[in-house]
Design a protein around this nucleic acid. Structure first.
Length: 292
DNA sequence: AACGATCGCAACCGCGGTGGG
DNA sequence: ACCCACCGCGGTTGCGATCGT
């Protein structure tokens, strides 16, 4: 068998480096035939002499039909910059808000274009800012400087009235890679996952439902926290009165509420990879949101 | 035309989280 | 409680393409 040189100088029988067209088509056929299977089974089923990681990466970053190629639109770039301010280098989270774009694409695009653009913008507004990269709330979390408030899981009752009579769109049962998935075991509950996204109808009592962030109501949150400066630095997310800081999920939720970005919210909630489905609970857990 | 510098992006690596046995 | 396999993620590298001199 042909041997390939690994980085540590040892030889490996697994192929590395650029993928050939033949390998691509084998992987594509395998994914089309078997759908979402364990990545460790992919190399054998596809007849590829590649490690599972390599296969996974190739599919998720390049071959998946849902991937949008070509240049980033201005609005996409703008969204990336704003989300990066909010989330830092959490590329997968950012990618989750940009349909068709992979975390790797976004990371590469950021490193080659947007980081400079973002710094230039910052400088324009605040010339004192020195190009040292963008701030992240992570170190502050670690230092324990703030109490991080995470939203509590939001549970949607199966018989919740606003879920009823909504059309079901199968395309919403797709994971991030665009592969059709059936994330829940067959049960009447499944239908609600699809219905949720399609609910252009905002529930009348939306505010009442969406309050479970540290036991506060949305009204209280909006009174207690400065949320007008979303996209600013960590300090701007700080509680007015005490040293508390909103988690990114909570900020996003408030952002959504303030900005009526309901579409984004539902996009987040329904673009759920199969691995997020807890087998024990038979529910989806996503960004602090639980769907029964 | 030649060649070095820079860019863009695919691919790899290693770490941390998770779940099953 | 522990170990191990698996997976996803972010950081980094490698290399072909393009640009500038």
């Amino acid at each position: 068998m042909e041997k390939f040189m690994a980085k540590d100088g040892k030889t490996s029988s697994l192929r590395r480096g650029a993928w050939s067209e033949e390998e691509d088509s084998r992987l594509r056929r395998c994914m089309e035939k078997y759908g979402v299977i364990k990545w460790c089974d992919v190399p054998s089923k596809a007849g590829l002499n590649r490690c599972r990681k390599s296969c996974r990466l190739r599919w998720l970053n390049y071959l998946s039909p849902s991937i949008k190629r070509g240049r980033f639109e201005d609005d996409e770039e703008d969204l990336i910059i704003r989300l990066h301010k909010l989330l830092g280098n959490r590329w997968s989270l950012i990618a989750g808000r940009l349909p068709g774009r992979t975390a790797n694409d976004i990371k590469n695009h950021w490193n080659t274009h947007l980081s400079k653009k973002s710094i230039a913008k910052e400088k324009l507004w605040n010339p004192k800012i020195i190009a040292k990269g963008t701030p992240s709330i992570k170190p502050r979390e670690k230092k324990g400087e703030f109490k991080i408030i995470k939203p509590q899981p939001w549970t949607i009752p199966v018989n919740w009235s606003w879920l009823k009579d909504q059309p079901v769109h199968q395309e919403h049962l797709q994971d991030k890679s665009g592969v059709n998935v059936n994330p829940l075991p067959p049960s009447p509950n499944n239908i609600n996952v699809a219905r949720k996204k399609s609910a252009a109808v905002i529930p009348e009592k939306f505010d009442d439902v969406f309050l479970d962030i540290d036991g506060m109501t949305v009204g209280e949150m909006q009174t207690n926290f400065e949320v007008g400066n979303i996209g600013g630095h960590g300090d701007e997310w700080q509680d007015k009165s005490s040293k508390r800081c909103l988690s990114e999920e909570a900020i996003l939720q408030l952002l959504i509420l303030n900005d009526t970005r309901v579409f984004f919210f539902f996009g987040m909630a329904t673009r759920v990879a199969p691995e997020r489905v807890s087998k024990k609970q038979s529910c989806i857990n996503y960004n602090g949101l639980t769907i029964l």
